[in-house]
């Protein structure tokens, strides 16, 4: 099929096949964008319009009250949640990149005699999905006194065996010549990593960083478990809380959802190339 597209239609002309292809793709694209449209529609409709009979794709009357309420502090939980998510996602991404890239470099390049065994340890850890260990991890973190704290939210997420492994695979393919030059200039392994290898790996760092940021911003189970105090809730927890509560301010909820998802959509549109690179790297190398 794909081959047919490439080789059968060298001369651009409108064929039935092409019409079907683009019609299908347009339909799929609209279907994929529909939920985002619904978020905006509901954020701009009053509660009564959202539940009233007779469905319409656009708001009956534009009502900005939902967004206004969000920024006027009527729901302080939401503002706090957005702030907490930003702090957690930024710190967790930065910390994870640092910790895991350093480990990946050591595993790929430092001729330490136990390095091979430690790679196996990392691989074995990969076998245990993090989500399954949320109960025991909660026990450990609560024993450290980190329940409802920044540390409890951020630190356990820094040590991703998967990310470290990705970095190792990447550094294995890193051009040796650059490192050799650095070593001739008198740099040790740390200096080589920090001053030569990292600065020359920015696209990969950006790609993994973006994936990590999205994962962190969107993560739900761990913040739900560890942030008992509302002042530490992330935006996902706040949204979920309103969603599963007995009462709901629908318009406000969708306005908040729009605000929570907008930064990521923007990032996805602007930095698509990096994310696709990171996603495929992450997908294939696994």
């Amino acid at each position: 099929m794909s081959a047919a597209g490439r080789f059968a239609g060298r001369v651009p002309r409108v064929t039935v096949g092409a019409v079907v292809l683009y019609a299908t793709l347009t339909l799929v694209a609209l279907l994929f964008l529909l939920p985002y449209l619904l978020i905006l529609r509901n954020a701009l409709s009053t509660d009564a319009d959202i539940t009233s009979p007779g469905w319409s794709p656009l708001p009956r009357e534009l009502d900005w009250g939902g967004f206004a309420a969000l920024f006027s502090g009527r729901d302080p939980l939401m503002a706090t949640g957005l702030r907490n998510s930003a702090v957690v996602a930024v710190l967790q991404t930065a910390g994870r990149l640092l910790v895991c890239s350093a480990a990946g470099y050591a595993l790929a390049r430092v001729p330490y005699r136990h390095a091979g065994k430690l790679v196996l340890v990392v691989l074995a850890t990969l076998m245990i999905p993090a989500a399954v260990t949320f109960v025991p991890t909660f026990v450990v973190v609560s024993s450290l006194g980190w329940v409802s704290s920044w540390r409890g939210l951020i630190v356990p997420g820094l040590f991703s065996a998967f990310t470290a492994f990705l970095f190792r695979q990447y550094f294995l393919a890193f051009p040796r010549e650059l490192e050799d030059a650095a070593r001739v200039d008198g740099l040790g392994y740390w200096g080589t990593y920090w001053r030569v290898v990292l600065p020359n790996s920015l696209p990969f760092l950006a790609a993994i960083g973006l994936i990590s940021f999205v994962e962190s911003w969107n993560s739900f189970l761990w913040p739900l478990v560890i942030a008992q105090d509302a002042s530490m809730w992330t935006v996902q927890v706040v949204l979920s809380t309103h969603l599963t509560a007995q009462t709901a301010d629908l318009q406000g909820l969708f306005a908040s959802a729009a605000v929570s998802v907008a930064p990521l959509v923007l990032v996805f549109v602007l930095l698509q190339r990096h994310i696709v690179y990171g996603a495929t790297e992450a997908g294939i190398r696994r």
């Binding site: 710190l91 450990v140 024993s143 450290l144 409802s148 920044w150 951020i154 630190v155 105090d229």
Partner: peptide, 26 residues
């Protein structure tokens, strides 16, 4: 903390200095 507190304290301390802060929101 009866069990893990002592064992993990040095690790915890190193994270605190690594810039993760200890603001519990309280």
């Amino acid at each position: 903390r009866r069990f893990l507190g002592l064992a993990a304290a040095p690790v915890a301390a190193s994270f605190a200095t690594a810039g993760c802060g200890d603001n519990t929101g309280r």
